[in-house]
């Protein structure tokens, strides 16, 4: 009885594997892509990056970043502000907690093998995070992703080396709050500077204005010395990177307190 059940299960598994492989190799089985979608995607590409008429385009080669920071920038801005309000709530909740530093932090944490590997990973991951932040307008990625990578890397460091390592090296909660504030101020000023300029120059201006539009000539140049920089999207990615990484770092430092310390 038991063996026959197993046999039926094995047959079903093999049938499923065969069906999936047939569907993926033979292109006629499965669904065909309709031609309208290609038309639509062509319009999306045109409105993302079209060198001939920059007025109707956001001039960001990476479409996801074009959508996030140009098509629906206000939506992203409010998402970001929800995240920061949550971080402010966490800071307010933990405001009574004082972190006592341990001077001999090298005896804490995991074994020496894991520590050495984590040091290697820290260098590689720092480079990867910064390159993802600076290349967000060309390759997939962006500020939020790079900040998340760096923050998760610091979470690994907190687990492997203990939180006192990070605090004794100078990356304290207050420094993280300062970095986060720099990122937020940069984000808000990059968003609202077109409106202030339009008031001064007596033209039209929009929130999140990336490129010059039909009625308003404001906007940074999308290309500098032959390199595509996508003007404001690069700035927004950098500021978002700073703010997100520092915000996550605050949460991780606060959450790594042991329960006994919190009860006192």
């Amino acid at each position: 009885m038991n063996i026959s059940y197993r046999f039926i299960g094995l047959l079903l598994l093999i049938a499923m594997i065969l069906a999936i492989s047939i569907c993926t190799t033979i292109s006629n089985v499965g669904f065909n892509i309709p031609h309208d979608i290609k038309y639509l995607s062509r319009w999306v590409i045109y409105s993302s990056y079209l060198v001939t008429t920059p007025i109707f385009s956001s001039m960001v080669p990476e479409i996801v970043n074009a959508v996030i920071w140009d098509y629906r920038g206000i939506d992203t801005f409010f998402e970001t502000s929800v995240f920061y309000i949550a971080i402010i709530a966490a800071i307010a909740l933990f405001r009574e907690v004082k972190i006592e530093l341990v001077k001999e932090y090298q005896y804490l944490g995991l074994s020496k093998i894991v520590k050495t590997v984590t040091k290697t990973l820290l260098v590689i991951g720092l480079g990867a995070a910064i390159s993802i932040a600076l290349h967000g307008h060309i390759t997939p990625g962006g500020g939020f992703q790079a900040g998340s990578i760096l923050a998760s890397l610091l979470l690994i460091v907190i687990i492997v080396f203990s939180v006192h390592f990070i605090l004794m090296k100078g990356l304290t909660k207050n420094l993280a709050i300062i970095i986060r504030s720099i990122g937020l101020i940069g984000l808000v000023s990059a968003i609202f500077i077109p409106i202030l300029l339009s008031l001064i120059m007596n033209t039209y201006g929009f929130v999140f204005q990336n490129q010059p539009k039909v009625m308003s000539p404001l906007g940074l140049s999308y290309v500098a010395d032959g390199h595509v920089l996508s003007a404001m999207v690069l700035l927004l990615n950098i500021f978002e990177f700073l703010a997100i990484f520092a915000g996550f770092l605050i949460i991780f430092i606060l959450l790594s307190r042991p329960t006994k310390e919190l009860e006192n």
């Binding site: 995991l110 894991v114 590997v117 290697t120 990973l121 590689i124």
Partner: peptide, 16 residues
């Protein structure tokens, strides 16, 4: 290269 560095370290930490 990342996997060959990180995988043994992870299993070492787990076993320890």
């Amino acid at each position: 290269i990342l996997i060959v560095i990180l995988g043994p370290a992870g299993s070492h930490a787990l076993t320890r």
